[in-house]
Simulated scan of single mutants.
Amino acid sequence: MHILFIGYGKTSQRVAKQLFEQGHQITTISQSPKTDVWAHHLIQDVHQLNLSQIPPVNAVYILLSPNIGTIDAYQQTYVDSIRPIVQALKNHPIQKVIVVSSTRVYRENNGERIDDEIAPNPSDEQGRLLLQMELLWQQAYPEHCIIIRPTGIYGTSNARMLKLAETTQSYPNIHWANRIHIEDLARFLAYMIHVEHPEKSYICTNNQPQALHERILELQKALNLPELVVESERETGKRIYAERMVASGFELKYEGDV
């Protein structure tokens, strides 16, 4: 199978390597030079994409992300890119289009439980643009599109949490956070190629929502740092569960990893 990656960062790199090792042909599209030997790399602007000179593509991974978090950047990266990509793919025998979105499409922010059956309802413009992206891809490939909504991705660096442990003396409330290890996310994305009758969308998380102050406290205790004080029992954030991911038979490797 010839698999195309549009957007080639840390997650794409891991997925591509796994699929190459399974015997697939890999081509990537990015805006800067790449050197991984398991793929053929093209430098192109996705808004002016030309795929006429590559072998027929059977599956596509869309893993784009803006350089900054502004509304304009979200519009350009996630929404404005769809039409030229679809146009460039029109003569290719596409069997699957796997689009990485985000759990930002869910509005809830009072500690509510979120799972795959909850309808997305964004609370901000960036979330609305992500949902618009999802809908446009599903319209373009109604029989072949799979939306993946990861929670916060971790695993490449612990520097942010260490900094919080060193500097946090109090926390305003109980804020629920949800995570997926980058290796588990990459494994699940690669796994999706082999699922014969996939769902239209999947949340991807480790199914262990945790109050953020508890994670900070764990590090403070381990490092013998002063321990923070929680100022309020009010809950924010959401508790997210990936029920369809579990039902698919996929197994996490980093479920309890700190």
Rank of each mutant, 00 (worst) to 15 (best):
I148C: 07
A159Y: 10
V37Q: 14
S65T: 12
K238T: 13
D115P: 11
Y8M: 06
L225T: 01
R83K: 15
S101C: 04
I54D: 03
H194V: 01
R179E: 11
I29P: 11
E125S: 15
G7L: 09
R239A: 14
P93A: 11
I147F: 02
K96E: 04
A222T: 00
Q75M: 12
T236S: 15
C204A: 15
T27K: 06
E125P: 02
D36E: 15
K238A: 13
F188K: 00
L135D: 07
V37I: 15
F5G: 08
L4C: 06
T28N: 05
G69Y: 14
C204M: 14
A39M: 08
E112F: 13
I240R: 07
G7K: 06
I182D: 03
D36R: 04
A177W: 06
A165Q: 05
E125R: 01
I94Q: 12
V258I: 13
S157N: 14
Q210L: 09
V230D: 00
Y8G: 07
R104A: 15
R244W: 08
R239K: 05
I174P: 00
T205E: 03
K90I: 03
I68C: 05
P142N: 09
E196P: 01
Q210H: 02
E108G: 05
R187C: 02
R244N: 04
N67Q: 13
R107L: 12
N58S: 14
V79P: 04
E214D: 12
I240D: 09
H194P: 02
Q76Y: 06
V60H: 04
T151I: 11
K221E: 12
E166V: 01
E183D: 11
Q169P: 00
G111Q: 06
S65M: 07
V258T: 11
L4M: 08
P226M: 14
K90E: 06
G155V: 03
L136T: 10
A247C: 00
V258S: 13
A211M: 13
P226K: 02
I98N: 07
N207T: 06
N91G: 00
Q48G: 01
S65I: 05
A119E: 12
G9C: 03
L223T: 01
N173Q: 14
K163A: 10
G23L: 01
I203G: 10
Q208Y: 01
S101T: 04
N110T: 10
Q76H: 14
L219R: 03
S123A: 15
R239Q: 15
L135S: 09
N50C: 10
L162D: 13
T236W: 11
K17I: 02
A88V: 04
T70F: 09
I6P: 10
I29A: 02
G7H: 04
N178C: 13
L63M: 05
I180Y: 07
E231I: 12
I193P: 01
V99D: 03
P93L: 02
H181D: 13
I203L: 13
H41Q: 12
H40A: 09
Q44V: 02
V100P: 00
Y106W: 09
K253R: 07
L42K: 13
F20Y: 15
I62H: 07
